[in-house]
Amino acid sequence: MELGRVGIWSIGLRSDDPAARPRIAEAAAELEELGYGAVWLGGNPGVNHARPLLETTSRLVVATGILNIWEYEPERVAEEQSLLAKDYPGRFVLGLGASHGPLIGDKYQRPYTKMIDYLDRLDAAGSPASQRVLAALGPRMLAASRDRAAGAHPYLVTAEHTRNAREILGPGPVLAPEVKVVLDDDLSRARAAARGHLEMYLRLPNYTGNLLRLGFDEEDFADGGSDRLLDAVFALGDVDTAARRVAEHFDAGADHVAIQVITAQPQGLTTREWRELAVLNEGS
């Protein structure tokens, strides 16, 4: 699995609106020209959300970041994945996640068991483990990422989590954490943007539970997040600040870092910031 050094994680690159496809295709082509190795589609994408981006590029890897296993039947996923693999061999990665109880409702029970069953059904349908990653935070899901997939795509994590994840995964599997970046030299303004983004995630126990394991406490979750929490999970500042944070994850054992640019327009295409951050691809 060749993801390159740095990728882009974006909700704005996934859309069900046919009118948005030309704009998304143009953005994907520019990301490829800028040297990014992969794009990760946010917003609960399906497999076929990757096709418009693959059609307009020649090397870029497109991943689901992540496909919600409660909403897509594995046999259909495997079928659609097979078609993409035929048309664009080696360029699609199936990112899978068990989502969160508050978002799923009453059917959200035993998510780890659900994931293992889902992987069993994918295997039976011919979906290759070598072309999928799991949105893993805790030790059991990280172990499943090692044993049943090509690796892990952790979201909302610190460099310490990346170090711990590498210990569980071992030296072989892919480790591709998501890293949030706010490009703003005004720290107060950057923190305000970060809190606006983080507030929703701090209502989801999978994330808060993981942050508690990393040494944060309940006080860190109040009012959109403490300064300590924001400074640990975001890169707040300029491109050099982002470069240092990305380097921390590589030093901790990451193979690839998926950057999510945070702005006041979460659904938009942050092309200006992507251009500025393209220097992070140097050394790929």
Rank of each mutant, 00 (worst) to 15 (best):
P22K: 14
A27Y: 00
G95M: 01
D16S: 13
T113I: 03
I11P: 00
L60V: 06
A50L: 04
P89H: 10
N68W: 08
G43D: 06
L122N: 01
V39T: 04
G101T: 04
G97D: 07
A29K: 11
A28R: 03
P22M: 10
L94Y: 11
D16V: 15
L34R: 06
A124C: 02
G42P: 03
K86T: 14
H100R: 02
T57K: 04
L53N: 01
L31G: 07
R23K: 13
L103F: 14
A63P: 09
W9G: 00
S99K: 06
K107L: 14
P45Q: 00
S82V: 02
D16M: 08
E33A: 11
A124V: 04
L54S: 07
P111Q: 10
E26F: 04
L31Y: 08
I104G: 02
D106L: 15
G12F: 04
A98I: 15
G35E: 09
A98E: 15
E80R: 13
D117Q: 14
L34M: 02
E55H: 11
S58R: 15
E79L: 05
R76Y: 07
E33Q: 12
I11R: 07
L67C: 05
R59D: 05
S82Q: 12
L53W: 04
R14G: 08
S15V: 04
G12P: 07
D120L: 00
T64S: 08
N44S: 15
N68K: 11
D87W: 14
V39P: 00
G12R: 06
R51L: 13
S99V: 01
Y88M: 01
V93E: 07
H100W: 13
H49W: 08
Y108V: 08
I11N: 11
E30Q: 13
I24C: 01
P74R: 03
E30H: 11
R91G: 11
P18F: 11
E30N: 08
L122I: 02
I69A: 02
F92E: 07
R21F: 11
L96C: 02
F92H: 12
G12I: 04
P52G: 09
P52V: 12
W40D: 02
R91S: 10
P52M: 10
R121I: 01
M115L: 15
Y108W: 15
Y72Q: 13
W70L: 09
A38K: 03
D106E: 15
A78D: 00
L122W: 00
A63Q: 12
R110K: 15
L34N: 04
M115D: 04
R121W: 00
H49Y: 10
L60K: 09
R14H: 12
I24R: 07
D120Q: 03
L83K: 09
I69M: 00
S58M: 09
L67P: 00
H100A: 14
S58N: 12
I11F: 07
V93F: 08
K107N: 12
A63K: 10
P22D: 07
L83Y: 11
I69K: 01
D16F: 09
D106I: 14
A85V: 07
R23I: 09
R76I: 15
A25S: 11
S15T: 12
R21Q: 13
R59K: 15
V62D: 02
M115N: 03
K107E: 14
S99A: 13
